[in-house]
Simulated assay, not measured.
Amino acid sequence: MDLAECLERVLGLKIQPLPGPHAAVADAAGPGYRILYLSTSAEFWEDRSQVNEVWDHFDRECLVLAEALIQVWGPPERVELSPVLDHSMQGETVPALAGVLSNFVPSLSAWHFEDRSVCLGVGQWDGELPVVLVAAAGDL
């Protein structure tokens, strides 16, 4: 992870317009939210022996980036996403960004602003897929 580049990308999430319903963007987006994949590990299809070590590495990267953001925006709120996933699985309506992130990120550090939240987290869609460091903006 290049800290300066990642910091610049995350800071941009606070001011960039969020995609509308028909926007095409890099990384991942939907109406009213944007998700950036800041760092991605290798896949674990054949060898899962390194998964815990990789998660630890990505958690440390996330903490370093969060510390840099604390210097700019102040302390974040810790957001657990398992309740969001539970509500979503029960057919309840959840904010789109929180719904997507809850599928692969267990918890986030979130900074709340007037028109959006900007958050950081580490996740993995499936045990064989890469671990990712994500930043996102939208309604949590």
Rank of each mutant, 00 (worst) to 15 (best):
V100P: 00
V94I: 12
P130Y: 08
G127M: 10
L129N: 09
S107Y: 14
Q124S: 09
P106E: 15
W125D: 13
Q124T: 13
N103R: 15
E128D: 13
G99S: 09
H112Q: 13
G91M: 09
S102M: 08
P106N: 14
A96R: 04
G99V: 00
P95H: 06
L97N: 01
G121F: 04
L97W: 01
T93I: 15
L120F: 10
H112P: 07
V118F: 06
V100L: 03
C119M: 03
E114D: 08
A98G: 07
L101A: 01
L120A: 05
W111K: 06
C119F: 05
H112L: 11
L120P: 00
R116G: 00
P106I: 11
D126K: 11
P130G: 09
A98R: 01
F113W: 04
L120W: 04
D115H: 12
E128V: 14
P130C: 05
E114P: 02
E92P: 11
L101Q: 06
T93H: 12
V94R: 02
V118D: 09
V94W: 01
L120V: 05
D126M: 12
G123K: 07
G123M: 01
G91D: 11
Q124A: 08
D126S: 14
S117L: 06
V122H: 01
D115K: 13
G123R: 05
C119S: 03
Q124M: 12
A96N: 03
R116W: 00
L120D: 03
V105D: 10
A110P: 10
L101W: 01
P130V: 07
S107D: 15
P106C: 14
G127T: 05
T93A: 11
D126E: 15
E92T: 12
A110G: 13
S109V: 11
G127D: 08
C119D: 04
F104L: 12
S109L: 15
H112A: 11
H112E: 11
V105Q: 08
S109M: 14
A110F: 05
A110I: 09
E128K: 10
G127I: 05
S102P: 06
E128W: 10
S117D: 13
A96L: 06
G127Y: 02
L97D: 04
V100N: 02
P130A: 13
V118P: 07
E114S: 08
A96F: 02
C119K: 04
R116A: 00
G123I: 00
D115P: 00
S107I: 12
V118H: 12
S107G: 15
A98K: 03
L108E: 05
R116H: 03
W111S: 04
S117K: 01
S109A: 14
R116M: 03
G99N: 04
S117G: 13
P95K: 03
V105Y: 10
L129G: 06
E128H: 08
E128P: 12
P106K: 15
Q124E: 12
A110C: 09
G127N: 07
G127F: 06
S102L: 01
P95W: 04
N103D: 13
